[in-house]
Amino acid sequence: MSIYVYGVTRAPVDLPAGLRGVGDPPSPLRALAAGSLAAVVSAAPERLRARRRDLHAHQNVLLALAEEGPVLPSRFGVVAADAESVDARLRAEQDSYEAALDRVAGRVEMNLKALTVESGLNDLLRQDPRLQRFRQEARRQPGYETSIRLGEAVMAGLTRRARAAVDEGVTALTPLAAEVQPGPEVEGCVRNTSFLVAADQVPEFRRVVEEFASRHSGEVELRVTGPLPCYSFAALPAAAGA
């Protein structure tokens, strides 16, 4: 019977009560211990899809486990053929997993996403001679072509402003983090960056983000999410480039 793998942690695992796994109805969670490690798993649903309920379940199980100790979160949707293959894998990779658990122990992931803000348009127009030229053209020769050129330049300018601001913010936040990783490219975000932060540094991290965000509100919108399971910092050394 195939099993859904939420993540890897250290044995023994004290599974928090009342946690729901993926599937409808959710199947019970259990820990498969192998040596010093344990995988937290449940029976894989027959038709697993990235539904909101299942994504929530995956995330909630990992958040709960992270409270108990270091955990390496699986990507959503990792399924093993059977318990034996999980056991064999954990034993074979024990040293790598232990090293990866040490890396995230006592730390959380904080994710920062940056978006453009339209309220910067006035300032942008004042500062950018090229944009002013496009605007003149659009006024002299109103039409589709000139409007598109102007609008595209505005979008590029807003993106540039937001990116410059958030990069400054990332620089300010980096000393608070043990590691920094770029996140996947997300449409609509000009930057997506994850920070590995000591759990007791989270309030300070947020303070710096908020302070920075309010100073740069005309340039960039920042969304900080966390503490999260350390998705971006869980890769095993061998798989780091994968």
Partner: peptide
């Protein structure tokens, strides 16, 4: 959850011999 979908779906360990199911949608 929406703000970190990219991480849940694109980061985290993929245990090499395990299958990552093809997820419709």
């Amino acid at each position: 959850l929406y703000d970190v979908l990219d991480l849940i779906l694109d980061r985290g360990i993929v245990i090499d011999v395990f299958l990552r199911v093809s997820l419709v949608g």
